[in-house]
């Protein structure tokens, strides 16, 4: 079984995000970037499936500028076999454009399973996996907390508002990963060295026959208002009064 894992380069989760002074976007200049944590979970799951003898090949794909190759190498150090880099200058592609590009890659690669993080921590859209499933007309299971491959079927437990739901999907299928699916491994030094020698193919949206149209316009980015310190009130009555008249929540 071949698995394709789509991954994204995002601002590192530990970095304090700053807004550019002209409010045009988040300031990414000289900021530490990393593999999106949900994507990391997707890669980890693929590697575990391979280690369990369920998968034979893992292909990671990313879309972005040259620096995004770092994340492909990171995924390869975790255990992915080869990488595909779709080169774009723009780092703010619409989810639909990303899904279209991925759909082409999936059509070329013909995997049995496509794994994606449920969302990227930069834009938090939570759309790409779903759109990809629609474009390919594949079954999908989002927010996976458990994935079991049985023959031609993936049995996926997903986290939903009411608890857990288990779905059986006929392969090929799309699965997006949630936080509790697994805990990504520490990367081993020998594997970092081996990742350097693994194949990384480059392609372009043109070669894939996808035009990069923008249907979403970013108007302005603002930092959340700084939290004001609280106040102390003398009595329960004063508290109720504040909640009613000042905060207007009751």
């Amino acid at each position: 079984m071949k698995i394709v894992v789509a991954i994204k380069r995002v601002i590192d989760y530990s970095v304090k995000v700053r807004v550019k002074s002209d409010q045009s976007n988040v300031d990414l200049a000289n900021v530490k970037m990393a593999l999106n944590p949900f994507c990391e979970i997707a890669v980890e799951e693929a590697v575990r499936l391979k280690e369990a003898g369920k998968a034979t090949e893992i292909v990671v794909v990313t879309i972005g500028p040259k620096a995004a190759q770092d994340q492909i190498r990171a995924a390869m150090a975790m255990g992915a076999d080869r990488g595909i880099w779709v080169e774009t200058v723009d780092t703010e592609l619409d989810a639909l454009t990303v899904a279209k590009l991925l759909a082409k890659v999936v059509q070329n690669e013909q995997p049995q399973l496509v794994l994606l993080g449920k969302q990227a921590i930069d834009s938090d859209n939570n759309q790409t996996g779903q759109m990809l499933a629609a474009l390919l007309d594949y079954p999908q299971a989002t927010f996976a907390s458990k994935v079991v491959i049985e023959g031609n079927e993936a049995v996926v437990t997903r986290e939903i508002d009411g608890g857990l739901q288990t779905l059986g999907l006929t392969l090929p299928a799309i699965v997006t990963t949630d936080l509790r699916l697994n805990e990504p491994r520490y990367v081993k030094l020998p594997d970092i060295m081996k990742a350097k020698k693994k194949t990384l193919d480059a392609t372009t949206p043109e070669a894939l026959g996808v035009s990069l149209q923008k249907s979403i316009k970013l108007l302005k980015v603002e930092a959340p208002a700084e939290r004001q310190g609280g106040i102390k009130v003398e009595s329960v009555d004063a508290l109720i009064d504040c909640l009613k008249n000042k905060a207007r929540v009751i």
């Binding site: 770092d70 190498r73 990171a74 150090a77 520490y186 990367v187 030094l189 970092i192 060295m193 350097k196």
Partner: peptide
């Protein structure tokens, strides 16, 4: 083989550990 990308990755992973 030891380019700065490789060194960065090694330091990052060692640091994380």
């Amino acid at each position: 083989e030891v380019d700065t990308d490789l060194t960065d990755t090694i330091l990052e992973e060692a640091g994380r550990f």
